[in-house]
Design a protein around this nucleic acid. Structure first.
Length: 629
DNA sequence: CAGATCACGCACG
DNA sequence: AACGTACGTGATCGGA
């Protein structure tokens, strides 16, 4: 055993040097954690740089533990995915992690919970479920307290604890000069590891107090923590892919892109790379098309698909259409290639971030499963495992419903209550249509689409100018439409005004679940620059949109948690595979599908008492089935 | 010459 | 610019 004390931290950092040290550490930690009721822990893996880390594959180098503010323990685990100890010690280590998993009387505190629990899963093959309240994530706690700043452990330590965790990072980098931890001096890594679990331990109490003071504890306990554990399962099990289909499509698109490239070169008269904006501009010039483009970026005129679509409308331009086709195929093939690269044994697993947005939405990374192209082309590859179905649920127009809920707008509430068509109703009012709601869809489908744009645009805080551009009318007409909209839905207008004045006064907005979006310094900004300043109005738009977007997504996520709890209570086998904001996909064993669907309905459609949020529910074999009409 | 960074474009709700 | 995201590609630039 070696002692690497840190006077700045005021703590002892103890490092095991052999198997018997490990065994005695385990005894001490069990004893200490049982007494204090809390255990912070942290793993180091072989990748130091955040963007290269993969907890399902990287080597698990070491772990550290801290159960009071005096001492932290660290011991090594593996090197190149091989255990460093004999079987007896390895078994004790595994048993120790099982003990941690099973002991619900001890609070386990981790910075970035899902990451470390994936490593635990690799070691013992188990993970905690949604209803286990003995796990805490300081990263998510910090995020709820301050969505505007970094939630990195070192930054938090300096912000909240006045500790310089960065010094260890500097030491590690100094010794290593590279980002691969496995080649580093072990004692430096251990010190670093100890510092992490020590800081996590200390941070927990500080953040807990702050959360309670800020009324965020409920949101954390009822939503964030269960969601973390639920998504842990989602990420561990992954989504099954039809690999043969994807490989076939990859080939098909490879040929198609080459062919399109050839055809375009022939028209233009020289070879060029259609993926390059710079080369594309030259091509446009040589075809005398550049003069018709009125959209510009920092480096020249735009060649994006909207520009191309405009050009295409002006005349019969084979080249432009081929380029549009090329861009679309190029994009799809990027998705296909990405999936094939990242899948393992036919399973694709994403990483959901709970702190990836300022609105409480999740984000999805490596790969992003929340932005797959609509339609069956790519989504057809996402299939259920043998003996299972996919149950796909979509909340219908949840953001507009949330707006009507806050606004208590009678007109809008009535439309939703009676199952009316909100877009048609808006179209009638804005465009002075003289027909019934039902007739709009048939008689004026294009106006209904525009009204849909208005409905969503209002939630984003759209201006007359942008509306004018969007639906191609004069700014005066757009102004007229907007005032008609607000005349029809008076409550929405009031809600927007109320939200604006309240965010200026308080410098934050808060939704019904207590989630906050903070705008520090807004009051002074308004004072010095006025309400029409671009920065100010952008904050005000964001504030209103936050209220709607955050509430909608909190409802969706709470429904997921309720459904999963119902699944466990009823002993069903159903696992969430992916969440795309207002869409959830579950994998359900055939025999339980019917019961599952009724649980899903009952747990989703009234998350807030008295406020209905209906869902559209489908039973599918693949994600693409949704689009097969 | 590998790697970081920017600009662009585009996929989703 | 009408809110919130992730990411692949090409071009460019400066340091090993």
């Amino acid at each position: 055993m070696r002692e690497l004390n840190d006077p700045d931290f005021g703590a002892r950092f103890l490092v095991a040097e052999n198997g018997s040290d490990v065994l005695s550490f385990i005894r001490l930690i069990k004893e200490g954690a049982s007494t204090s009721g809390i255990l912070a822990f942290d793993f180091e893996t072989n990748a130091l740089k955040e963007d290269r880390v993969n907890p399902l594959e990287d080597s698990i180098l070491s772990c550290s533990f801290c159960f009071d503010d005096k001492v932290a323990y660290a011991f090594r685990l593996q090197s190149k995915n091989k255990w460093l100890y004999d079987d007896n010690v390895v078994n004790c280590i595994k048993e120790f992690y099982e003990w941690i998993l099973n002991n619900k009387n001890i609070k386990k505190v981790i910075h970035n919970l899902k990451f470390d629990l994936k490593l635990v899963w690799r070691i013992v093959g188990k993970y905690p479920l949604v209803n286990d309240s003995s796990w805490e994530d300081t990263m998510i706690m910090a995020y709820l307290l301050d969505e505007n700043n970094s939630v990195g452990l070192k930054r938090l330590a300096s912000r909240y604890l006045n500790l310089d965790g960065f010094k260890y990072e500097r030491m590690v980098l100094e010794v290593g000069k590279i980002s691969n931890m496995s080649s580093l001096d072990w004692y430096i890594v251990s010190q670093y590891n100890c510092a992490d679990s020590f800081m996590t331990y200390k941070l927990y109490y500080v953040l807990l107090d702050k959360m309670k003071a800020d009324d965020l504890f409920d949101l954390y306990e009822k939503l964030c923590r269960p969601l973390l554990l639920l998504l842990l399962e989602t990420e561990i099990i992954g989504f099954k892919l039809d690999i043969d289909y994807l490989k076939q499509k990859r080939m098909w698109y490879r040929d198609k892109l080459i062919e399109l490239e050839r055809e375009m070169s022939k028209i233009v008269g020289f070879n060029f790379n259609p993926r390059s904006v710079k080369q594309l501009r030259k091509v446009f010039e040589s075809l005398s098309l550049s003069g018709k483009i009125d959209k510009f970026g920092k480096t020249g005129f735009s060649t994006d698909k909207n520009v191309l679509a405009k050009l295409s409308k002006q005349g019969d331009l084979v080249f432009v259409d081929k380029l549009l086709e090329f861009k679309k195929s190029q994009k799809i093939s990027e998705f296909i290639n990405g999936l094939l690269e990242k899948q393992r044994d036919g399973i694709i697993s994403t990483n959901f971030l709970l702190n990836g947005t300022v609105t409480g939405r999740l984000s999805s990374r490596e790969p992003n499963l929340q932005n797959l192209p609509r339609g069956a082309e790519v989504r057809r590859a996402f299939i259920s495992r043998d003996g299972c179905k996919l149950v796909i649920a979509d909340f219908e127009q949840i953001e507009l419903r949330v707006a009507s809920f806050y606004a208590k707008d009678k007109t809008m509430l009535d439309i939703f209550k009676s199952g009316g068509d909100i877009h048609s109703r808006t179209a009638i009012e804005c465009f002075k249509l003289n027909c019934s709601e039902k007739e709009v869809k048939e008689k004026y489908p294009d106006l209904r689409v525009k009204a849909k744009g208005v409905n969503f645009g209002i939630l984003y805080g759209l201006s007359p100018k942008s509306l004018a551009e969007y639906i191609n009318v004069s700014i005066d007409d757009a102004k007229d439409y907007i005032s008609r909209y607000f005349y029809l839905y008076t409550g929405i207008k009031d809600l927007i005004d109320k939200t604006r004045s309240s965010v200026i006064e308080n410098e934050y907005v808060e939704n019904i679940f207590g989630r906050k979006r903070r705008f520090l310094g807004l009051k002074n900004l308004v004072k010095s620059k006025g309400l029409n300043d671009e920065e100010v109005s952008s904050h005000l738009r964001e504030a209103f949109n936050f209220l709607i977007q955050s509430t909608a997504v909190d409802i969706c996520n709470l429904s997921i948690i309720n459904v999963k709890k119902g699944v466990l209570e009823n002993n069903l086998d159903a696992k969430l595979l992916v969440q795309v904001h207002d869409e959830q996909i579950w994998e359900v064993v055939n025999s339980g599908v019917e019961r599952f669907c009724s649980i899903l309905k009952s747990e989703s459609e009234e998350v807030i008492g008295g406020f209905k949020t209906p869902i559209d529910l489908r039973i599918c074999n693949s994600w693409g089935d949704k689009y097969a009409d």
